[in-house]
Amino acid sequence: MTPRPPAFELYGLCKRFGAKQAVDHVDLTVPSGSFYGLVGPNGAGKTTSLTMAVGLLRPDSGGARVFGADVWSDPLRAKSMIGVLPDGMAMPERLTGRELLTYLAQLRGLDRGQVGERVDDLLAGLGLDEAENTLIIEYSAGMRKKIGLAGALVHAPRLLVLDEPFEAVDPVSATVIKGILRTFTDGGGSVVISSHVMALVEQVCDHVGVIARGRVLASGTTEEVRGGHAGLEEAFVDLVGAPEPVKGFAWLA
């Protein structure tokens, strides 16, 4: 059987900011149809790796392939297959939620009927229909995440790359989003998320990659990474190394 190309493949990614090696030879493979969780401490290089892998930041070396299409040498094909939710970037802030989704759908060349149907579905599904006439700049942090997610979904990509999609999202919306993403992977789509919430990653992801200080410490299915530990959290602390326990500050007593 000819091996199907993996949904997403990061190879040899490196990035240096000044004297700091933020990402140091990151290799990750996201099998087609998997729900992949990327975890790591703050400043580990998750955002930097994902930004480089989707083509928004030029790597010093290495690259990424989406279903075999190289993001940097065959960008048109690669980009047509991915939907991205980056962390902390601006959007056309002076559009309303509906206008933004309509804009993104039209930019991808969808026809009028498709645009209307998908925008309605997304706004209703993510609970944004009440805010559809609010400008993005007035959205709350969680609403920004949700409208960003809707924007990543609107052109029906085959691969979703989501940087901290559950951050600041309320529990009800989080359940909705999990449901949407599960249906997406059940239908053959692939998802990469980065997150700090181990319980959530353990619950939804079937594959996990652990990054710290710009390097991949472990990657594979959730069971493989968990190994002999009771849970993913213990495995993570074991891999990354627990810091000296801080009992509290004397002056704060």
Binding site: V54, G55, L56, P75, L76, R77, K79, S80, I82, V84, P86, M89, A90, M91, P92, E93, L104, L107, R108, G151
Partner: peptide
């Protein structure tokens, strides 16, 4: 003025020209 909103243009195939 639009700041990093540019990312959406960069990620849509062929959107730079448009």
């Amino acid at each position: 003025l639009d700041g990093s909103a540019l990312w959406q243009t960069l990620l849509s195939p062929g959107a730079e020209r448009r």
